[in-house]
Design a protein around this nucleic acid. Structure first.
Length: 561
RNA sequence: GCGCUCAUAGCUCAACCGGAUAGAGCAACGGCCUUCUAAGCCGUAGGUUGCAGGUUCAAGUCCUGCUGGGCGCGCCA
């Protein structure tokens, strides 16, 4: 529908150019939007307003010329000029209703597109270090990252989900020491407990499993515990594997799976860090000062230069980051999206600067970043900070166990990443109209219920009959619903492009609302066979779009509630 | 102090690369279940879009400054 209108306007604009009303070289940047106010029709364009200046004419005058030049089209019932010069289009009912068969024919593929053309995209998200259970912030990253992947897949990209973790740094050392302390029978209260040791209850579990000689399988490694409290390396290997397995279980419970787990240590083992250093030094972007080696990141937009090799000879964390991203580039990902917490935002400029300094032809703004703000968890209006298992923070598992996977995923992905999020446990748990997840799922269940009713009343849906009488769907509510359904593909496309999964959530809320309104206003199970089947068809189309949209969010679409 | 980011109804949030009278839900008030799931619907009320300028035919949206919140500013990751 929208495309049709754009074509019509394009034809009209071209004609005006031929008539000399518009200068030949004026670009026709045609924008058509669904209207907010029904009095303005179904779609509106501001074309006359934007062309007024180059044409040197009054907007309304130009609008009239454009309308006069519009080719005839059966899909458009009426065209108005309103306000300062908007052109408003009223769609013919039959044309609007065509969305129903197109949804039913497309089924699960309705809303999907091939615009990504099979391009390889990598999305890195979560990337938690294996030092403890995943927390709410990781959960937000997991929800947003996974939805983004689903959106990209739905728009024709070849997506790789990647999880990067540091299995060798100071934090891991610290983890090993903490577990070792537990193995030796110490508790976090003891004076001998490692200074920056991890204090959560899970440390005791790791120690116990280690002593019991358990065998842990995580990623592609298998580690068996032993009773030796002295062997710190063995403890470290075991603890890392144990916590990686824990995190995997959390992610599995959340419905998130990764294609690649990338170890920071592999960058050292494969010589990629050294190669990166060499490239940077050879490129002349480094200098020695205070016994350390610095990278001149200020040449590439950073506000100060960064140390890349410390006085003690070790590398700073940002160097393997650069090596890692070079590796991503070399693996052929022209688009890479890093989903991270906003507390990492300083790495954005740094990593990009480091990549530029390599001079390997990586584009300036590469890679993309999606940063999410902090999550605050509340219960009964009070902030929740502790969990039994992790001690100092609320774990993702706590939320999944308490409010369920669907509500957790929806709540964490339904808001803009760059706004701070308050996760209200009471709200997420409530099985009532306050809860957006149930509101949407309820709409889906209602259609299912309607279909069951049709079956049991021996009035099962007659597809052919329904398709023949779609023009009977002529109430305001039905038209609103159909217009909403027609917008779905556009929403998916846009959400993928802007990397904003919350747009899908918002759309689903609106769609559910339109459906509930329609449901209350229009009775489906009427005796009139033609009317009933047309309405059942609309119900099925709505159910299909709800399903497709919920699937993009990773949320289930229950048949009954 | 510097950088990034956010600020919309009492609360939680929308507003589609600037577009017409800024929309939902919750909370408040008033209605709708002998009819397809009331986890729903309809209605009333609620706003100087943090403040001050600027650009534009048109600004919640873009620019500048300010105020306030979050995050970051280590040879930690």
């Amino acid at each position: 529908m929208k495309d049709t209108i754009i074509e019509l306007l394009d034809a009209a604009g071209t004609q005006l150019k031929q008539q000399g009303i518009l200068p030949q070289d004026t670009p026709l940047a045609i924008k058509v939007e669904p209207t907010k106010d029904k009095a303005h029709g179904d779609y509106a364009s501001n074309l006359a307003l934007t062309l007024a200046k180059p044409a040197g004419r009054k907007p309304r005058e130009l609008a009239e010329a454009l309308v006069a030049a519009l080719p005839e089209n059966g899909a458009i019932r009426q065209v108005d000029i309103a306000g300062p010069g908007f052109i408003n289009f009223f769609a013919a009912t039959d044309a609007v209703a065509q969305v129903v068969p197109s949804i039913l024919d497309a089924g699960d593929t309705y809303g999907r597109s091939l615009s990504g053309q099979g391009q390889q995209v990598q999305v890195e998200f979560v990337s938690a270090n294996p030092t403890g259970p995943l927390h709410v912030g990781h959960g937000r990253g997991a929800a947003i990252g996974d939805c983004l992947c689903r959106l990209l897949e739905a728009t024709g990209f070849d997506v790789t989900r990647e999880f990067y973790y540091n299995d060798a740094g100071a934090q891991i050392q610290n983890l090993a020491l903490s577990v070792q302390a537990r193995v030796q029978g110490l508790t976090p209260e003891a004076a001998e407990w490692p200074e920056n040791g991890y204090r959560g209850a899970y440390i005791a579990d790791v120690a116990k499993a280690y002593l019991a000689g358990e065998t842990i399988t995580a990623d592609d490694r298998e580690v068996t515990g032993k009773s030796d409290a002295k062997d710190l390396d063995a403890i470290q290997d075991f603890a890392v594997a144990y916590l990686r397995r824990e995190q995997d279980l959390d992610l599995k419970a959340f419905g998130v799976a990764f294609d690649v787990y990338f170890l920071e240590s592999s960058l050292y083992n494969d010589g990629k860090v050294d190669a990166t250093v060499k490239a940077l030094v050879d490129g002349g972007h480094t200098y020695e000062e205070d016994g350390a080696t610095w990278l001149r990141t200020t040449d590439f937009g950073d506000d100060k230069d960064r140390v890349m090799r410390k006085k003690d000879g070790g590398y700073t964390y940002f160097l393997p980051d650069v090596a890692y991203h070079l590796d991503k580039w070399q693996r052929g990902f022209t688009t890479v999206i890093n989903e991270q917490g906003a507390d990492h935002h300083s790495t954005v400029t740094r990593v990009r600067a480091g990549l530029q300094a390599l001079e390997t032809g990586i584009p300036q703004g590469w890679p993309d970043y999606v940063l999410h703000q902090m999550v605050l968890v509340t219960r009964s209006g009070v902030e929740v900070k502790l969990s039994k298992r992790a001690g100092s923070y609320v774990t993702l598992r706590d939320l999944i166990d308490e409010v369920g996977r669907d509500a957790t995923r929806f709540f964490l992905a339904a808001r803009r990443a760059d706004s701070q999020l308050t996760f209200d446990i009471d709200l997420a748990r409530s099985q009532s109209n306050d809860n957006p997840v149930y509101y949407i799922q309820y709409a889906h269940a209602r259609v299912c219920s309607m279909m069951r009713r049709a079956e049991s009343d021996a009035k099962a849906f007659d597809h052919a009959l329904g398709m023949q009488h779609l023009s009977r769907l002529d109430t305001e509510q039905e038209k609103d619903l159909m217009n909403r359904l027609a917008r779905y593909p556009e929403v998916v496309e846009r959400a993928a492009q802007t990397r904003e999964p919350q747009q899908v959530a918002q759309y689903l809320m609106d769609l559910a609302s339109d459906f509930h309104t329609c449901y209350n206003a229009v009775k489906v199970m009427v005796d009139d066979d033609e009317l009933r089947n047309a309405r059942l068809a609309l119900g099925l189309a709505t159910r299909q779009v709800l399903r497709n949209g919920l699937d993009l969010m990773g949320v289930s679409a229950p048949e009954e509630m």
